[in-house]
């Protein structure tokens, strides 16, 4: 009996070792592909950034009227944004090449499924990222603008804008991933409808006089502290 147990163990060990041996070249290829991809990506990022800097890409973009791109991009540099994007594209390519090398048959089936879903994930991530960047940018714009117009509830306005955009972006991303389905749409319809209805009721009924007083007061405050026309420059 012990002989049979030993034989079974030997066979299973052989199978595992054989399996590992069959995967090993693919795994080595994956590691190699990733190392090469990282090296290429770093070089591409560095080269692209240097070239764009030499071309004064940021200034040109601003000159051509694309100032908001510069305002929204991380580190306020569109060159850096382009360079980082190129970096991640190369890394993704390296990963796909490496994965394809592990086991062509199994991986191609799995990758087929992944690749089929990947665009949705990609778009969802982009939506959330863009929503986050846009929310931060617009929240800051509203905050500064409201303060300069001397609106007392500047921070509230800014936060409102920020969360509206964030919630909208997340909802769009979830919708794109087919998560939540009709519940999500319904929740949104109720939420937005509720906000609009609450504001309409507040202005139209309950707080009519208070809102009127507030706006009158704020209209006075929005006057510039300069009482007479003067030449500031």
């Amino acid at each position: 009996m012990w002989k049979q147990v030993g034989q079974s163990l030997n066979e299973s060990a052989s199978r595992v070792i054989a399996g590992l041996a069959s995967i090993l070249p693919g795994a080595a290829a994956l590691v190699l592909a990733m190392i090469v991809a990282v090296l290429v990506a770093v070089s591409v990022r560095w080269l692209l950034w240097r070239v764009l800097r030499a071309m004064r890409f940021d200034d040109r973009l601003e000159t051509l009227g694309f100032a908001p791109v510069a305002e929204w991009s991380p580190a306020k540099s569109p060159s850096l944004l382009v360079a980082r994007f190129a970096y991640w594209v190369v890394i993704l390519l390296g990963l796909l090449i490496g994965l394809a090398a592990i086991d062509a048959n199994q991986m191609s089936a799995m990758m087929g499924r992944v690749l089929f879903y990947l665009p949705n994930v990609f778009v969802a991530v982009i939506l959330v990222l863009l929503g986050g960047v846009l929310a931060r940018f617009l929240a800051r714009t509203v905050l500064i603008g409201a303060v300069n117009m001397q609106i007392q509830s500047a921070r509230l306005l800014s936060a409102g804008v920020k969360w509206m955009i964030l919630v909208l972006a997340v909802a769009m991303a979830l919708d794109h991933l087919s998560i939540g389905g009709d519940v999500l749409k319904l929740a949104f319809a109720i939420l937005f409808g509720g906000i609009v209805l609450a504001m309409a009721l507040a202005v139209g009924l309950g707080s009519k006089e208070m809102v009127s007083r507030t706006w009158e007061h704020q209209a006075d405050r929005r006057e510039s502290p300069v009482m007479a026309s003067t030449d500031h420059v």
Partner: peptide, 8 residues
């Protein structure tokens, strides 16, 4: 240094 958007 473009620490934040210049317009802001």
């Amino acid at each position: 240094q473009r620490r934040i958007g210049r317009e802001h």
